[in-house]
Write a protein that binds this DNA or RNA. Sequence first.
DNA 1: GTGAAAGCGCTAACAA
DNA 2: TTGTTAGCGCTTTCAC
Lengths: 349, 349
Amino acid sequence: MSNRISKVTILDIARELNITAATVSRALNDHPGIRESTKKAVRETATRLNYKHNKIASSLRLGKSNIVGVIIPSAEINFFGSVVHGIEKVAAENNYTVLIYQSNELYEYEKKGVQTFLQSRVDGVLASISKETINLDHYSEIRNRGIPLVLFDRTDDKLGVSSVVVDDYAGAFQATSHLIEEGCRRVAHIAGQQHVNIFNLRLKGYIEALNVHNIPLNEDLIVYGKVSIDSGRECMKQLLARPVIPDAVFAVEDFTALGAIQAIKAAGLRIPEDIAIIGFANEAFGEYLTPSLSTVNQQTVTMGEEAARLLFEGLRSGEPFHAHPRKLVLKPQVICRGSSVKYPKGDGR
Amino acid sequence: MSNRISKVTILDIARELNITAATVSRALNDHPGIRESTKKAVRETATRLNYKHNKIASSLRLGKSNIVGVIIPSAEINFFGSVVHGIEKVAAENNYTVLIYQSNELYEYEKKGVQTFLQSRVDGVLASISKETINLDHYSEIRNRGIPLVLFDRTDDKLGVSSVVVDDYAGAFQATSHLIEEGCRRVAHIAGQQHVNIFNLRLKGYIEALNVHNIPLNEDLIVYGKVSIDSGRECMKQLLARPVIPDAVFAVEDFTALGAIQAIKAAGLRIPEDIAIIGFANEAFGEYLTPSLSTVNQQTVTMGEEAARLLFEGLRSGEPFHAHPRKLVLKPQVICRGSSVKYPKGDGR
DNA sequence: GTGAAAGCGCTAACAA
DNA sequence: TTGTTAGCGCTTTCAC
């Protein structure tokens, strides 16, 4: 009620106590070598006057904002939501605030996000590259300005920055192997855009699993989609129209799998009896489907935590951040659920 | 490559062109009364030198940050994700950046978020109150400091600030009426914490619908839960154990409905034949369930847009923000899907 | 149409 | 242990 619009500064506190602003600042920052009694008095006066630290002034003076910017394609994809959680956790531990920017998978938005971050003088950036993005100059700019940048999930080695990814190749290999071990022989793959690194790796993992299990690769069983529910549905329809109908599908991620499931059901086929299916990413909805969706877990929270840790370690060390880029590879795990398990008791071998 | 660490300021541009920083500032801000040729030269030099506007310095000088803070319980609830989308859209139109803080439904986090925003000198706050929150002093503080505050969805009239809500009472009324019109007579309600305004309104809407349809209220058919999947499951189990088994359930929101569905299926009952069910909130997963979940749509994006608009209008008008709080009530719509429609062709009357 | 000068609120040398 | 002083980068009166 007293100070409707707070304009209380450290100077007000100083005057109140007949000391200088410098002392107040030091007291507030718990500087060693300020008498305890002074600190106490300052703190009390601060609360009494309703003082609030001005981060903007502090940032300007310090040349650092204590903000990290995070660029994600979409907060509505559960995967990124979880990663952000991991990031926020570590950021909070380091006394940092997190600014989130959604690119909506659009190159232009992504560029705009980078500019916003640069203007806001964020101390570091964590980013996952949008599907649409091919030109990486905006990320180079961050790098070149010496601002710590760590990529996660959708990364690009060309940038020469640290990154955290899940082993998509291994995940795809395991997922496909799982289907084969359930007894499937005509395993199809609904793939994603091949310029996106992780989607390409998933295709490769799929192919390798076929190899290892001595199943000849059949190009007819691979379709390339755009990674969405609609695209998954369309791709599945194409597969069902081909001479050889698959008995299993490894979808590039869960939304694609969902679309495929709809198409399979619409065709009057049973899951997993006629066609088994597995997705990738462990989106929340998968658990609630009937049958529940098998998928690959990507350690999302860990990914966020590790990415943030990489960032803060570099931030603390203070030194040329991008000198020695590190690459962390997390191990994925197959989650077997109803959509892929044909023989709940035994196994297919 | 040239300026690894950008330290280019308007002064550098000024020196380059033999003018003063003041002129550069004006040129960059497109001040009228700066010669076109000067502006052009300044802009060119700025890009050449890789100049980047320093928002922090600007904010300090201007006394405004051009940032709005948004407090939501959780980004993982689809509902809030959509609202944030609406907010971001309007914020972008107004040249504002959005800072998001997740309270995780925890009072302490929520308080911390408010403090962070206050320190960051956000120009306004949009918030949805956490389920756990009872004490509202932290919100009063925002208000008392004269910082624009607009609440959405989880609001509280006691604060005397503008708010945007969906008409929960009407939504609950419509949802319950829908079940009754499908021929159900023993309509149960899994309710939420009654200190949360919207949950209380939903209970009231439920009761009123029974009244209007001349169905006596049966306290045995109401259980109070904690609004989560687990709680929904437990509450449903309780209902199934009672002397009168319901033939329909109106769940306080979709996650609760999901838990209830699991319990119903586990009990070997069919949906909607034995028990029809409807949720609230139109979470994304509902569409993908089998049967798909009927629910109440809350105009989420609109809610975000309207809340943001309320904020920016006040921000622009510049005047005592909380003098005339406005309350916007959006109309919800029942979405009929498989879980509640017993007679797809006709109706229950 | 442009310059000179002051200041937003804070912090860190350097002094004392 | 505390004070003095200067400055972070920008914007804005007030001059001219």
